[in-house]
Write a protein that binds this DNA or RNA. Sequence first.
DNA 1: CTGCGTTGCTAACGCCCTTTAGCAGGGAAC
DNA 2: GTTCCCTGCTAAAGGGCGTTAGCAACGCAG
Lengths: 337, 337
Amino acid sequence: MTHRVTLADVARRAGLSPTAASLILNNRPSTRLSEEAVQRVRRAAEELGYRPNAAARTLSTRTSRTLGFLSSDVATTRFAGALILGAMRRARELDHVLLIVETLDVEEDEGVATLLDRQVDGVLMAATRSHTVRVPTALDHTPVVLLNLTAGRGTTQVLPDERRAGHEVARALLAAGHRQGTALVGAPLAARRSRSVSVAVRRRLAGIADAFGDDAPVAEVGFEPWEPEAGYDAVTRLLRDGPAFTALLCLNDRLAIGAYQALQEAGVRIPGDVSVAAFDDDEAARFLRPRLTTAALPHEEMGRLAVDLLLTPRPAAEHLVPLPFRERDSIGPVRGS
Amino acid sequence: MTHRVTLADVARRAGLSPTAASLILNNRPSTRLSEEAVQRVRRAAEELGYRPNAAARTLSTRTSRTLGFLSSDVATTRFAGALILGAMRRARELDHVLLIVETLDVEEDEGVATLLDRQVDGVLMAATRSHTVRVPTALDHTPVVLLNLTAGRGTTQVLPDERRAGHEVARALLAAGHRQGTALVGAPLAARRSRSVSVAVRRRLAGIADAFGDDAPVAEVGFEPWEPEAGYDAVTRLLRDGPAFTALLCLNDRLAIGAYQALQEAGVRIPGDVSVAAFDDDEAARFLRPRLTTAALPHEEMGRLAVDLLLTPRPAAEHLVPLPFRERDSIGPVRGS
DNA sequence: CTGCGTTGCTAACGCCCTTTAGCAGGGAAC
DNA sequence: GTTCCCTGCTAAAGGGCGTTAGCAACGCAG
């Protein structure tokens, strides 16, 4: 267990005081040290392979180059990876490190305390499904950025631009001629005004409504949960009971998986007979053939942005990140048009 | 920015020295302090909401209650969540925290240094696809546990028990009467001796070979990558060119997804006409109907175990974690038997 | 009364770094 | 020759905790 190289070691080898070494290695601008001293210290540090002790530094500066990532459900679910990854990579670029704490909401205070004990420079609060939270008062004196979450007060938030995505996906269908025959799968447009629906969904619906304007989908089926089975059931029923439709606008990719199954089972061709579009660019739907046209949740990008906002504080605001539109093979022109 | 409560504050309020407070709060066994002093300190700490400063503690003890999680590809891929989650939860239970660093192999040394700077108590090196690595020499004096990785030297490793899983899944098919008609999809049994195949796959195949004994699969198709498309192609070809089969043993769930598509497209019923079994319990295959019988990669459990091994060091060894066999609905008795 | 063992506590130092205040020496100004 | 400033550097004081050595008081044996 060899002794780790310390600042004092570097100073000694350079024939200077630890103060000088510290000043030099931290590039203090006010440095009135001779160029020669600078070189000597730099060289000594290099030769000894000096790395500052993070704990000592933190103790002294009350800063840790560490960011807390607090998640209620993130770490476990399918979009977690990208969110964390984006944050981690950006943190890394800015010479910081991520401390990830999963908190089952109940133990949230405990998780926050753990982070505060370690003097994190900021905290990311994240979720995969956006909802509203209260920022613990313990974090009053710490920069906080919400990821996929909203809070009443003046907090900085990063959210996907659901509205725009809704608009864009719906437009793609309408532009292909499906204005008269698009069925909405997952929730009715009216749900965009319902308080019992998440903000994300409300916005997604609002965007869709925008695109439709005065027209209306030929059918709207609402249900939960948005899983393949439910999508399968809904589309099967739609095929059986009508009305006839030329396109399916699924509120997420998992519904589209079920929709594909129902359509293919019924011998309906995609996109020949029916076009399909959805949201999320869920990994689970990557293998669908024809490839599903969808709007991709920009989780990695959101993670990156959140870290940026955390480290270069700006006035509190809601930051919307666009969902890249992935035009693939599931939308075709309306039949006979 | 209120002053954080310090040990000295607690001591003062209890009317004792910081030494006494430290001794008491850390439950020093040799404590010869009066019961009354103990109570006073405990109460003062409680009342003030005292939380020790992690940096100060680390500086003093050279220990950080922090574990490093070093991953080459983990954070990005689909099984990452479970691995990290298991490690994180177990760490939490043992009052530790996880510092996750993604390292693109190239910058591995940099990642290790970052962890060492923070005096982590141990390092987990993880991957989602097992392969062989070299443990950086910088970690010579730090406990290391490999997760899903192997290294030549005497290291502690946590791996899924692929061999047993192979045996179990194959047995399930054979027990249902498919000894004569099982086709192996993904790689031939002979690949279990090939150096160009990962250890995990070799073991999986070895377990399958064990179960088959002197018999052989009716067909064996090997190819890459193990993705739904390839599975679809392979099974389509098999259906067309023969030989006839009554069961499909897919080397992973993603192949099974493709196999399902091919079978259903051809009007073959599962499990009435053909049974299907696979490996991984991949989230992407959860929605298959009938539900796929598979052996689940025990990532969360592996993460937990790895942390245990890190914090209570035992002699270096390879630890195998069983893959729970998920018996669902895709295996049926062989037709006409 | 001395010596010794306990009990109950504290002084003081070390961990490694940052930062502020200030010192020695030299040259310029008066 | 004194004052002043400037340059180039260092001493010292934290930051908050853990830990070792040791002190004071007391009871008891001799």
